[in-house]
Design a binder for these strands. Sequence first.
DNA 1: TTCTTATATGAGAATGATTCTCATTTAGGA
DNA 2: TCCTAAATGAGAATCATTCTCATATAAGAA
Lengths: 143, 143
Amino acid sequence: MKKHIPHKQDVRDMLKGTGLKATTARVDILAVLARVKQPVTVKDLVQLLPEGDQATTYRNVSLLAKHNLVRQVDLGQGHAYYELNDEKDDHHHIICVACDRIEDFSECTVDQLTRSALRQQPSFKTVIRHSIELFGICSSCQK
Amino acid sequence: MKKHIPHKQDVRDMLKGTGLKATTARVDILAVLARVKQPVTVKDLVQLLPEGDQATTYRNVSLLAKHNLVRQVDLGQGHAYYELNDEKDDHHHIICVACDRIEDFSECTVDQLTRSALRQQPSFKTVIRHSIELFGICSSCQK
DNA sequence: TTCTTATATGAGAATGATTCTCATTTAGGA
DNA sequence: TCCTAAATGAGAATCATTCTCATATAAGAA
Ligand SMILES: [Mn+2]
Ligand SMILES: [Mn+2]
Ligand SMILES: [Zn+2]
Ligand SMILES: [Zn+2]
């Protein structure tokens, strides 16, 4: 259940595997995301990186997302979050509207949703990605 | 199934019903949203309004959303969309990643999702809102 | 209907996130 | 080691959204 931090060389191989150059900026981003195990904003990421540059970080998270190494998470906050993408673990998020605490949850209804959507809208042929977020109140904010 | 455009006085009463002033800016926003029947950006909205002011429109869509007269839709585009909120019709969206075509679909798995999430994360007590979006390819873009 | 006033509006400036420009550096193959 | 296409970094630019404050207006009171 618990995920371990990948060794630096594994990350480099991951990048090579997708045809991307294994630059220090990219390796560092993946290392930080592996360590924090939480969706983080680009601003946070720049802070957490040993040498974080804003433009480079934005460029790289987009690129890594395009190659499915990271996942962009949209929590309706006006800015994107990013987390490491684990293909084998499709999960979604529940976020506290009071304190922004974010937790994962997994589910098994995506196939149903997809089938239902494609049945209702024959003008769509394929679903390639989905986003499911729940907004609620966590126990500490429930007081 | 088809929804008709509400008469201007009905819209005014709707606003009064929530304790909001029935200003022309607000009535016009609701009228446009009723007419287009599609999630629109604030930029679009400002264009479509007879006298659209940016700041006023932003203020009003937020306010109307807080009072559940409109619904903010998040499609991972870096900016929000808004649509008229019909309490009786909980639906979600499927958007074409190639041409941004947006269609609705409804489903019945939100309860399952919610139960599942709360079971997995006992640190959360309540779910008050959800966002489910599917990203795919529409038939015209499938070529 | 007219008056009063708390609210809303509108024009523009400010802010925050994200993207772009371009000179310089670097990864990785030859 | 060398070469070069690709990546980086610093700053400026852009885009969405919010704020400021002077003016206008909805709606209840008279
Ligand atoms: Mn997650
Ligand atoms: Mn809709
Ligand atoms: Zn909380
Ligand atoms: Zn399309």
